[in-house]
Design a protein around this nucleic acid. Structure first.
Lengths: 203, 203
DNA sequence: AAATATAATGAACGGTGTTCATTTTTCATA
DNA sequence: TATGAAAAATGAACACCGTTCATTATATTT
């Protein structure tokens, strides 16, 4: 009975179409400004149809988050390739900040938006886990070789992440305007700050 | 002519009533979940009246932000009193993180929410400027006495702020759930992380 | 007391996420 | 190949939202 197979295929294809369209629109206009109605219009279906494939708007967000985390992990793998643990750590830092600066709306939906993971823990672990694991591995190397001033791996990972996230998110929310720096200098300042930070925690 | 005086007084009193009510409701339910309509209902006026005193919901946010920044500055002044620059810096760090943990909705509206300052620069400078200045002063002391591994004051301030903000905001958005830590241990972990961070950048 | 200026109203507009009775389409069976 | 059941899609309706503005009510001045 090939019909059931096709139906299932069509169902996942439709889900995929919605997900991809949502991803594109979230990326361009942000999560908040993208309405279910506009997604439906984009794929030429009625609003109600979206709800046949996704429980609610948040579930659509989960999905896109998953893909976004995947992209970030790819960036890590491509950019942080050094065999020197410290250099690799610097590469991760740079990659993270550049990712945030180059994909503001995506970054927003991954780390700043209030939504899903406030409730659902497991999905978030699966999504963000791999990215965090990459960082943990990286710092594990550094600590094993006694290159850092912080010896707890989880603590060190948290700190590096928090610092990078702090820099990116304060900038994304324009909170750095209180500093006397021209707009265009910001990216370099963030990168430089991250490097200085890593240098400071390095023995 | 005492009438004009009274009218003016009544006008500022009304503005104040709206602002205070908004503050209370933002603090309890958050900015997004507090509607103009509900604020109006709380003060027993019609929705339209709010707009006679505030341009829009964002202006109400500005106002509350201003007060919130004032509160944070007060906390700094009360908590960071040591004459030892490094100890004072630690006190600022602790105070900031505790403020964020104890006033999540307020913290949200000060540093995470997408809104006003994305556009209006001056208001933000006035609002957050004093708090940032307190940190800058503090770090200035440390650097002058050659106690830090980072020598640029602005850079150091940015880093300390970003780290503290990163810790608080990742927690507020439940992104720390990917770590294997029980909920109730988080506050201590954040404080400890901040202290470890400051220790690492200290000579 | 009448006219004017100020203040408050609340219906209306265009938007949101979401639901669900109804209609359309697809498919297996007779 | 016609028919009835199952699946899919619809779009109007609900309860919200921020905001506007003609209308009404109140207060002040003449």
């Amino acid at each position: 009975m090939g019909v059931t197979d096709r139906k299932e295929r069509e169902k996942t294809e439709m889900r995929e179409l919605i997900r991809a369209t949502a991803m594109k629109m979230f990326l361009e206009d942000g999560y908040a400004k993208t309405s279910i109605r506009s997604i439906a219009e984009a794929i030429e279906y009625s609003p109600g149809t979206i709800y046949l494939y996704f429980k609610d708007k948040d579930e659509l967000l989960y999905e896109v988050q998953g893909e976004a985390y995947g992209q970030l992990l790819e960036v890590f793998k491509n950019e942080a390739t050094s065999t020197d643990p410290l250099e690799k750590l610097r590469q991760v830092g740079r990659a993270y900040i550049n990712f945030g600066l180059q994909n503001p709306e995506l970054y927003d939906l991954m780390f700043i938006i209030r939504a899903p993971m406030n409730v659902d823990e497991e999905i978030h672990k699966a999504n963000g886990g791999n990215c965090f694991a990459f960082l943990v591995d990286c710092l594990s190397d550094c600590i094993n070789k006694k290159l850092l001033r912080i010896n707890d791996v989880e603590q060190a990972s948290l700190l590096v992440w928090a610092t990078a996230h702090g820099l990116v998110s304060l900038n994304l929310r324009c909170r750095l305007k209180i500093m006397d720096q021209p707009e265009e200098a910001i990216p370099q300042i963030l990168i430089k700050s991250m490097e200085d930070y890593l240098a400071a925690v390095t023995i």
